[in-house]
Amino acid sequence: MKTTFYCLLILAFQFGFATEKDSLADNPFSNLPQFSTALYEECDACGCSASGGSMGFASMLNTNFIGIRYFNQSYQSTDGLYSNSPWYNENFNTVQIWARIPVVKRVQISAQIPYHFHNRETNTGNQSINGVGDITVLGLYQIYQTHKDSTVFIHSLQAGAGVKIPVGKFDATNNGSVNPSYQVGTGSWDYLVATEYVIRRKQFGLNTLLNYVIKTENDKNYQFGNQFNYAGTFFYLFESASFSVVPQLGFAGEVYESNYQLGQKVRNTSGDIFMSKLGFEIGKEKWSLGANLMLPITQNLTGGNVEANYRWSFNLNYSL
């Protein structure tokens, strides 16, 4: 029931902003950047399968590209057994090859191949894990775009679905820790539905997105909870003869359902977080460089035993 509800909510929200279709033949962004921010935040509350999330799934200045991105997530966790239980630092790091490639008219394929290297403090000393993470592939279909000579607003709506392939290693010994997401992979095939809507007036615009991740049980009988994500980003395009700059400001939210082990709900694994977003991207010819920072505003992760400190990323892309 929850899955059906969220899927319907995604479609209702995005189509609620849509205007009457004008034309699919003309692309209003054919000579401008495709202002796309995040399509995923499938990090299972932290970093075990993090591959983009509210940090962003597409370049702000390259419609079609291949690039490399690094992002860092900082958390702290406690067992919460006592009022003075110590807090330990956790750092989730990812280097990622990512791309967005046109296939046929109106259809794009986005892909991410991550390599994770995480570390954390524990009461017995420091721990670290590393390895190739789960690969994500998403197909997006352009439902409509308004004429580029629209006198008021330019609109764009995309929707799609994808899959996360369980390439990364899942270590069942971490299931009993305070943060079960301390992994490089989930070990499960997960499925995604997503929509993205952009409204633009001259240099100003707003990008909104909704997506839902359906997660399945892995061969260790562990299942991470399904995940609902939303975000909105205001942007401004500054262009000169030699370069372009896009500052951006917005918000992002994530809602996590409970994990399951052997068919039983795992206590204190659901939660939610709401964050602010600040970033920019600067481009010259076929190259672009971007950076983003996210800070939590409100959060309730794993019953309050895990707290997010910040997330940040930078990326270097080459336009295809």
Rank of each mutant, 00 (worst) to 15 (best):
F15R: 01
F13P: 01
E257W: 12
F170A: 11
F235L: 03
L209Y: 02
D134Q: 07
I10A: 07
S128F: 03
K265S: 15
E285T: 09
D26S: 11
A45E: 12
L278H: 10
V193C: 06
Q108H: 13
Y212G: 08
T233I: 00
V137Y: 09
L295M: 10
S83V: 07
A58I: 04
R69S: 08
N84W: 15
Y82W: 12
A252S: 11
C7M: 07
R200L: 00
T78D: 09
K148Q: 13
V163S: 05
T298N: 10
H147Q: 14
Y75E: 12
T186I: 05
T136G: 07
G160M: 08
F238T: 11
G290H: 00
S128D: 14
T19P: 00
W287M: 02
F153P: 01
G290E: 02
N64Q: 13
T94F: 04
S59F: 06
H147Y: 15
T151N: 11
G290Q: 03
E41G: 12
E20C: 08
D26G: 04
K21G: 07
L295D: 01
R100F: 03
A172P: 09
G56Q: 06
Y40E: 12
R69T: 04
Q183A: 05
G16V: 01
F234N: 03
V103D: 09
P86F: 07
H147D: 14
W287T: 02
Y141E: 13
A38K: 01
F65N: 06
N259K: 01
F243D: 01
G139Y: 09
G283P: 04
I66H: 10
Y256E: 07
N27K: 11
F153H: 11
G303S: 11
F170E: 04
P28N: 13
F29I: 06
V137C: 11
K169E: 07
Q127Y: 11
L61D: 10
S51P: 00
C46F: 02
G56R: 01
M55C: 02
Y6V: 08
N62D: 14
P247T: 05
Q127C: 03
K148Y: 13
I129G: 05
T4A: 09
G279A: 02
R69H: 00
T63K: 15
M294A: 03
A194M: 11
V184D: 00
S59Q: 05
V163M: 09
V107G: 10
V163Q: 10
N309Q: 06
E217R: 12
Q227M: 08
Q145S: 15
P33G: 12
V245I: 09
V163H: 04
T124N: 03
T37Y: 00
I154R: 14
I282V: 15
L157W: 14
R201H: 15
N62G: 08
K265F: 04
L138A: 13
Q73H: 08
G176A: 10
L24D: 15
I10W: 05
T94K: 03
D44T: 07
D22C: 05
P166E: 02
N229Q: 07
S150H: 11
L293D: 01
L316I: 10
P28V: 12
N268C: 09
Q223Y: 06
E90Q: 12
S77Q: 14
Y260F: 14
F234R: 03
K215Y: 02
F13G: 00
